[in-house]
Amino acid sequence: MIVFVRFNSSHGFPVEVDSDTSIFQLKEVVAKRQGVPADQLRVIFAGKELRNDWTVQNCDLDQQSIVHIVQRPWRKGQEMNATGGDDPRNAAGGCEREPQSLTRVDLSSSVLPGDSVGLAVILHTDSRKDSPPAGSPAGRSIYNSFYVYCKGPCQRVQPGKLRVQCSTCRQATLTLTQGPSCWDDVLIPNRMSGECQSPHCPGTSAEFFFKCGAHPTSDKETSVALHLIATNSRNITCITCTDVRSPVLVFQCNSRHVICLDCFHLYCVTRLNDRQFVHDPQLGYSLPCVAGCPNSLIKELHHFRILGEEQYNRYQQYGAEECVLQMGGVLCPRPGCGAGLLPEPDQRKVTCEGGNGLGCGFAFCRECKEAYHEGECSAVFEASGTTTQAYRVDERAAEQARWEAASKETIKKTTKPCPRCHVPVEKNGGCMHMKCPQPQCRLEWCWNCGCEWNRVCMGDHWFDV
């Protein structure tokens, strides 16, 4: 396979590697080409510095992935760790964990309700045991953590790749202090920090972006993250068709209702045909949960890209028209025109101005929308079919299609509260000796007794199943 190397943020060049090629071997190839010592090179990928003893497969490097290699003399205490030698983080029983690669970060837990604080980093599902597709590297999971809308060759929703760059020099040479644990960490600028490894760059702020994971991409090709779309790892039924499908869209209502993408497309087109989208002054033209839940309008309007190009163009047109109407304007009634106009409040005669090729020149009556006339309008008909009709959803289907309910059931079956801080902690095999993952707590306690870890627990039921 081919990976592209950008040395000291210059133009990239291809390097041929195998899945079992080590990072140090990659350094040696680059060092020979650039005429520099291999031990002064640092390989940066997806916000993480890659260790010498890791392989291309370990690092989730795919065909035509772009890695950054910078030349920086080692500072005291760094060289041993980078070589894969006596790194205290690798000691058996050590409590410190390697910062998780962005290629394996899962933010789907952050669609849980606000009262489930902490689960994004504490609760991990076991539903990723799908067998890898044919042709994928051994052991590589097909679980997708992110979804994007690819405006490039795909023109559809695709699995996405999370990447990070330095907000100062805009190069992907920043190593994160810690990985993101929720969508806010990724979507809110300057929320996460790190250290830029580019020479002479003092940058410390992280800037995240997404790429389409279905095809090789260049540095400049980015895609918009659709953070309401998630892999259906909890096997929730769709609120409309009641099938279990994946991926799904999880509405931001209190129940976190789930809808499959085909039904979401149908829901949007139906509402669009009836012009029953909601115009929100802050958000724009949007839709609420299909069950009509309060405070559930979709905030990231790129989710409506699921409509496809033709329907999305209609959505944008109707949204612009609705904006004009909300501002007190009118639409030209001549067939084939429909231009938005903003006449004076007491102006009865409205002319669709033909300047700049935008208007048709038609003069019409503001009251009856017919060709302009003197005197009273002959008839004014009330528009028919403008009443909002509820999208029919079966109550039982709505009850079963809740992301929140599956989460709470998982928590109930696989977790116990920490005796000190009461945060839910998952036990997935292993011994009875637990350690609270909350940095402010870190209590060592017994899963069996529910009390602080002691010699009695150690001698009596340390390794009970």
Rank of each mutant, 00 (worst) to 15 (best):
I122Y: 14
Q400G: 14
G450P: 02
G194I: 07
C263A: 00
E310M: 07
K412L: 11
R420C: 11
G328N: 08
H68A: 03
Q171C: 11
S109P: 13
G47N: 05
N58A: 14
I411M: 12
N313F: 15
F362Q: 06
N232V: 01
Q25R: 06
R455K: 15
C436L: 01
S10R: 04
I239H: 02
L272S: 01
A339G: 09
L249G: 01
Q165R: 15
L443F: 09
N8F: 00
E195M: 10
G361F: 15
H215A: 02
T414P: 13
V423Y: 13
Q178R: 13
F208M: 04
L249Y: 03
A138I: 12
T388F: 08
V36I: 11
V30S: 00
F362A: 06
D243T: 13
P247D: 02
M327A: 14
T217P: 09
C337S: 03
H257N: 00
T175H: 07
Y318S: 02
R97K: 14
K408R: 08
T415P: 09
T414C: 09
K413V: 15
Q282H: 10
G93T: 14
V269P: 01
G328H: 05
E367N: 12
R396Q: 11
C238L: 01
S110H: 09
C441W: 01
S296V: 01
V157C: 06
P333A: 03
L174R: 02
A406H: 12
P159Y: 07
R245V: 08
P159C: 06
P133L: 11
K211W: 05
N190Y: 08
H279T: 06
T217N: 11
K161G: 04
D394S: 07
G93H: 13
V111Y: 12
C293V: 00
C166N: 01
Q347W: 06
D280H: 10
R305N: 08
A371F: 10
E49H: 02
L307N: 04
C360W: 02
M434S: 06
P133K: 09
I66D: 03
L61G: 02
L123M: 13
R348L: 08
D20C: 07
Y147I: 01
A379I: 12
S108R: 10
R156I: 06
R305E: 13
Q252D: 09
P288V: 03
W447R: 07
V248K: 02
Y149P: 02
I23Y: 01
I259F: 01
A230R: 14
